[in-house]
């Protein structure tokens, strides 16, 4: 249950970050409808955000390893 709660907390953080960043990028001026093109933008933006997350993750972990090795 701890695991599940942590997983839920993480997913919540991911959802919030995607939402804040993709809302700004896809819907800079909120109109009266959420049309197909908005939906398509959000869908693509979500995938790009997760791609970005992976690049950041890889870079960060690689750097931390390098720094740790430099300390030895």
């Amino acid at each position: 249950q701890v695991k599940q709660e942590l997983a839920v907390a993480q997913a919540g953080e991911l959802i919030n970050k995607i939402n804040d960043n993709c809302f700004d990028l896809c819907i800079p001026k909120p109109g009266s409808t959420f049309d197909k093109s908005d939906k398509a933008c959000v869908s693509k933006c979500m995938e790009r955000y997760m791609d970005a997350w992976n690049v950041v993750s890889k870079t960060y972990i690689a750097r931390m390893k390098r720094e740790q090795e430099a300390l030895r």
């Binding site: 970050k17 960043n21 955000y49 997350w53 950041v56 960060y60």
Partner: peptide, 12 residues
């Protein structure tokens, strides 16, 4: 994961 979330937010 929190650190990665923060970096993604800053760099995005």
């Amino acid at each position: 994961q929190q650190a990665i979330h923060n970096f993604t937010s800053i760099c995005w």
